[in-house]
Design a protein around this nucleic acid. Structure first.
Lengths: 227, 227
DNA sequence: GTCGGCATGTAAGCGGTTACATGATTGG
DNA sequence: CCAATCATGTAACCGCTTACATGCCGAC
C-alpha cells in the first residue's frame, strides 16, 4: 500500500487538492507512482480520518465544495518512518519479456515489438529529462516549495536524491532503447536471409561487464543438438 | 491477465503439473512472471474449461489424484496470437524510488537503502546469469524440449529471444548495481563532512549517452537559490 | 451554447496476497 | 517418528481498473 505514502510524500511538498494528486499520478511522469482519481479520493478520506492529513474547505458554490489537503505532523512522521525502512522488492512481472520469449512462433511481429519498446522508452526518457532539467534549473515548483522549508544542508540532500532518482530512470530508459535497437539490428542482418546459418550480429552489449561471451555470436553452435 | 499466457507459455515447452508451475513462478527466477499456487490452480481449471489445455489424471492413491496438464492446439493459437501483439506498458510504480526521494528527512538510512538495492540486484543478476549459462550450454530442459519440436531455423530464433531476454535483464541488474554503488560513493565522500558545500562525487554515469551534464556535479550551484 | 479543464465522488469486478486446509511420499 | 518435499485446493481481503455519475467555470 504505497499509495498512502505517495500521497503523503506529495503533500509533504505543499498542500494540494485530490485533483492535483490525480494529475500528478495519472500523467504519471516526473513521478514514480501512479493512481486514478477513483483510488485517490477514498484514500484522502482515510488519511484524514487517521489524522495524517488535514482538510480545508473552500466553497466554490452552494452545492460544490473544494478541498485542500495539507500534511499533519503525524503524517510527516509516518512518511519519514516509512521512507527510512530499506526497500522491499515485489516479484518480477514483465509482460513485455513474456511476450518476447514466446514470439518465436510469430517472428513477423518481432520488429514491431522492438520498435514499440524503443519508442515507449524514448518518450519516457524525454519526459524524465524535461523534469530533471526543470529541477536543475530551480524551476520546479513542488521541489522548490520543499526546499524552501529546509536549511541549505537539507536542501542539498533533497536535490541529490531527486537527481539520483531521475538520472537512474533516464539510464534505465537509455538501456531499454539500446537493447531494442540491438535487437532491431540483429533482425536487419537476418531478414533477407531467413534460412541463414550465419549467427551474425553481436547480441551482448559490448560494455556489459561480466557477461559471459559465447563463441560465435549470441547462440551457441551446438544449440539444436539438445534432446 | 498475463498469468493465463504465462501458463500457456510454460506448457508450450512441455506438459507439467500445477506444482511445477508454482515452483517456476514462485521461485520466480529464470522467469519473467510470478504467481502463487492459490492463483495457479483455479486458472488451470479455467484454462481446461476453455479448452486451451488438457488434463491427464494419474492416480497417486485412493484419495489423491495428480494432474498433468498439456497445451491444446487452441491454446497454442491463443498464445501465439497474444505474443504477436505489440507490448503495452503498465503505469510505473516504483516503491524504491518513492522511498528514496522522501528519505531526505532520514538521511541515516540512505546507506542501508542503497546497499539493499545493490544486494538485491546482485542476487538477481547471479540467478539470471546461471540460467542463461544453462541455456547456452544446451542444458536447460524446458528450452531443450521446446527446441526439440522445431526445425533448426526456428530453434535459432527461440534461442535468440531467450538470449535477448536474459541479457537484457542482466544489463538492467548491472545498471542498478552501478547506480547504487555510485550513490554509496557519493555518501562516502560526504559522510565525514556533512556541512559540506563541496558538491563532490560525480553523479551521472560517465558513459550514459545523452545525459545532460551539469557544471560541477549532480547538483546545480544555484540549487538552494529557489524561492 | 457547448466543449474542455477543474473538481469530486461511487460501484462492480479483477488480479494478486495471505491464510486456512488436507494428504501422500521419501529420507534422516 | 518427524520433517521436508510433493501435491491440490478454498476463502477472505486488498489494491487497482473501468465505468458510472455529477456539477462548476471560462473560453471560443
Amino acid at each position: 500500500m504505497s499509495l498512502r505514502y505517495a500521497i503523503l510524500g506529495y503533500l509533504s511538498t505543499g498542500p494540494g487538492t485530490g485533483y492535483d494528486l490525480a494529475r500528478q499520478f495519472d500523467t504519471g511522469l516526473g513521478w514514480f507512482w501512479s493512481a486514478r482519481h477513483s483510488q485517490i479520493y477514498p484514500e484522502l478520506k482515510r488519511l484524514t480520518e487517521d489524522g495524517l492529513i488535514t482538510r480545508d474547505t473552500t466553497m466554490v458554490s452552494e452545492n460544490m465544495d473544494k478541498y485542500i489537503y495539507s500534511i499533519a505532523p503525524e503524517g510527516l512522521a509516518v512518511l519519514r518512518d516509512w521512507a527510512s525502512k530499506p526497500p522491499t522488492y515485489a516479484p518480477n512481472r514483465d509482460t513485455e519479456r513474456l511476450q518476447l520469449i514466446f514470439s518465436d512462433d510469430s517472428p513477423e511481429s518481432l520488429r514491431k515489438h522492438l520498435e514499440t519498446h524503443r519508442d515507449h522508452f524514448r518518450r519516457r526518457r524525454e519526459k524524465l529529462q524535461a523534469t530533471i532539467d526543470t529541477i536543475r534549473a530551480g524551476e520546479h515548483e513542488r521541489v522548490n516549495s520543499r526546499l524552501a522549508r529546509r536549511g541549505p544542508e537539507e536542501a542539498a540532500l533533497t536535490l541529490q536524491l531527486r537527481e539520483m532518482a531521475y538520472v537512474g530512470d533516464i539510464e534505465r530508459a537509455d538501456l531499454e532503447i539500446a537493447w531494442a535497437e540491438r535487437g532491431l539490428a540483429w533482425l536487419d542482418s537476418h531478414e533477407h536471409k531467413p534460412k541463414g546459418r550465419q549467427q551474425g550480429a553481436a547480441l551482448a552489449a559490448p560494455q556489459a561487464a561480466g557477461v559471459q561471451q559465447v563463441g560465435e555470436g549470441g547462440v551457441p553452435a551446438d544449440a539444436s543438438a539438445a534432446p
